[in-house]
Design a protein around this nucleic acid. Sequence first.
DNA 1: CGGAACGTTGAGCATAATCAACGACTGTGG
DNA 2: CCACAGTCGTTGATTATGCTCAACGTTCCG
Lengths: 247, 247
Amino acid sequence: MARLDVLPVARSHEEPKTSRCSGCAVRDSALCASMSDTELTALRVIGRRRIVPAGQIVSWAGDASTFCANLVSGALKVTATLADGREQIVGLLFPGDFVGQLFTDETTLTVTAIVDTDLCGYPRAAFETLLGDYPRMERMLLRRTMASLNEARERMLSLGRKNAQERVAGFIFDLAARAGSRGADGLLHVSIPVSRGEMADYLGLTIETVSRQLTRLRTNEVIAFANGDRVCTIKNPEELSEIVNPD
Amino acid sequence: MARLDVLPVARSHEEPKTSRCSGCAVRDSALCASMSDTELTALRVIGRRRIVPAGQIVSWAGDASTFCANLVSGALKVTATLADGREQIVGLLFPGDFVGQLFTDETTLTVTAIVDTDLCGYPRAAFETLLGDYPRMERMLLRRTMASLNEARERMLSLGRKNAQERVAGFIFDLAARAGSRGADGLLHVSIPVSRGEMADYLGLTIETVSRQLTRLRTNEVIAFANGDRVCTIKNPEELSEIVNPD
DNA sequence: CGGAACGTTGAGCATAATCAACGACTGTGG
DNA sequence: CCACAGTCGTTGATTATGCTCAACGTTCCG
C-alpha cells in the first residue's frame, strides 16, 4: 500500500528554488494560476513537494482519499482495474494537471508514475477548505473537471465504437495535436510518452494488436519511427486524419 | 437543428403548481437543493419549464451551447457520434440531474429525450453568472461533475475490458442497485428504461449481441422478464453478482 | 388488414485475442 | 569483457468472440 505520505521523498538540504511558487514551472498552468502571488501563500503553507520515481504507485484504488496534488513535472497514469487483473487506463496526467479524488473518502482508481514525477501535494481536507475560500480556484477546477468529463466521453466513443486501427491512429493523432513538434524536415514529430503495454491499456486493446496496427501504419508510410520505438514521425497527415475520422 | 428554445413547449393556461419551486418534484435533489427558498427566486426568474416529447432531440452536437437545465421528470440520453453514424451513449440523465455543457461555446454531444421529459431550463450565460453568486450551488455542481467523471471512468473500464456477458449483466446489476424495487415475491424487480438498441449503444455492443446475452441470462435463470421486455426480475442475485465481478 | 417498430434467433464471417517464438537492447555479475 | 537474464517490441499461427446479414414472431397502430 504505497501512499503519497510514505513514499520516498527526495529532499535537498536547503529549500530548492523551484519550491518557491513564483519560479514554479506550472505557476501559470496549474490551479495556482487562479491565485495572486499573495493569495498563493495559503496554498504554499499546506503544500509539500514530492518526487515519485517512474513505476512507483502514488495511490492505490481503495486507499483513503487523503491527498491531492498539482503535477509539476513528469507524467502519471490513472487506472481502473478488475479483480482478475484486467486494467484500463482512464486518464493520463501531465504538468499543470490536478491529481486526486475530492469529496470522497475512498479512492476507486490507482495512480502510477510513468516517468519520474514531481508533485506539489496537499492534504485533501485542507485543500477542499481552501477551495471554498478562493472562488476563482474553485471555478478553475470546475472548468477542468468538466473538460475532463468531455474527454472521458470522447474516449467512451472510442472504446465502444472504434476499431483497432482507428484507436491507434487516433492516439497518435491526439498526441500530435497536443504535443507534436515540427522538425527540420517540415514533418510533425511526436514523442510517445508510454510503452506499448500502456498504449494497449489506454486503448482497450492487447499489446500485440497495438503493435500490429503500428506496423501497418508504418508499412503504409503514414508514420515512421525514429530513435527507437518512442519517437514517431507523421509522414502522411492527410491519410492519418482520414483513418481517424472516416466517413 | 432542434434547439431547446425552438422546441414545442406545452403550456397550461395558468402557471402550473409544479412550476412554483416549492412544490417541484426535484426541489431537494437538483442543484436547487443548495438554495434557500428566498435565494431560489434568482434561479426562478431565469428558468422556463419545457416539456420534450419522447424521441425528440434537445440539443445537437455542434449547436451553440446556449442552454442548460435541471431535469424534472423523464429521462435523457447523451450521445457521441462518428461521421459515419456509429453512436455511443455516454450518459443517461434522470430527475434531479443537470443537463448541458457549461464554459464552452459549442456542444460536442447530442441530447435526446428517451421518454417524455420535463425540463427546467436556463440560458447558459445567465446560469453561469448565477453560479458565481451562489457558492453552495457551484460547490454542488462541482461534486456532481466529479461524480460523473468517476462514473465515466468506470464505464471506460467496462467498454475497454469487459466482455459482452459482463457488460449486459453489469447494466442490469447497476440498474437494480439504483432503481430496483422488491416485489411481493421477495425478488428484485427492475424496470429497464431503454430499448434494446439503446442498451447496445450504451454498452458498445450490437442489438443482436445484447439480445443473445439477455437470452443466455434468462436461460440460466439468472433473470426473468415480466410484462414484456422492459421489466426484469432478478432470480439469482448471487450468480448475477458473480458474473459482474469475476475473479 | 397491412405496415412499422421492436425483439429474437440462426448461419457465416471478420476482427482482435491468445499462445508462442524470436530479435534488440540494457544492466548485472562472473 | 562477455555471458546472462530481463524487459520490450514484433511477428506468426490459431482460436474465440462478437459482428453482419437474414429471417421470423409479436405488438401496436393507422
